[in-house]
Design a protein around this nucleic acid. Sequence first.
DNA 1: TAGGTCGTCACGCTTGAAGCAT
DNA 2: ATGCTTCAAGCGTGACGACCTA
Length: 264
Amino acid sequence: MEPAFGEVNQLGGVFVNGRPLPNAIRLRIVELAQLGIRPCDISRQLRVSHGCVSKILARYNETGSILPGAIGGSKPRVTTPTVVKHIRTYKQRDPGIFAWEIRDRLLADGVCDKFNLPSVSSISRILRNKIGNLSQQSQYESGKQAPHAPPQPTIPYNHLYSYPTSKVPTPPGMPTLPGHMAMHRIWPSSHSVTDILGIRSITEQQNAEWFAHSEQLCHSAQHPSLPPSHPSVTLHGVQRHHVGLCDRTHVAAGQWQCSISPQL
DNA sequence: TAGGTCGTCACGCTTGAAGCAT
DNA sequence: ATGCTTCAAGCGTGACGACCTA
């Protein structure tokens, strides 16, 4: 089956319906806005719809993060963290316990009522997916951690996109600042828009244009306070120098690394 | 007044967890 | 136990209307 290679919007930009824009573009939107460039100009320059630019900027202003939200899934209607915790406890106390027994105990202990009681299959899934390596984990724990095979970092529920584990996830409690979100992350695996679209070369070229163009826009934009050649831009406490804001050598759509060092 | 800008929303789409069926 | 379906979340686009400016 031939995969869909995205669509082209009215501005000539390539997008995948239903999928978020690459982080590189999202960051560019915020950066250009920080430079004082108007959203309509950003929209035209990045070939992203005005509504999208507006939405991303609004989200950034509200949350301080440019990252897209977690797509898919549904709210934990029954298997809440508390329920999972109790299931884990039951399993630890009695490794041979059956799913239906766990279900009964959840009800008996008042952890759940008849309305939010997980099904047996749900409990089985929890046991398999979330507590499946319990015995292995407890071995590690009892043995003061295995020297190798470090445990996966606990990903908070409803986390944003799970990025490849080789990349550093945003620590819990740490605000998702542009500097941290850090474009050290790459776009999700096979769903990478740039990979799907095969637009890396395009976006690279576009980025080069953006840098050149944004420089012009810096001059033309009503932002006289910004020195045209080496503006210092602060993104939520993350100050960056140089017009490009990122090392050009690091620019590659979807794998955009910025040399950002938070100013402490 | 015309053209540009901006915020908002409906739409069609993707995604993934929960729940159900086999 | 496994595979399928359902559902709810988020995505970007495109269009609309209100507002602003020359």
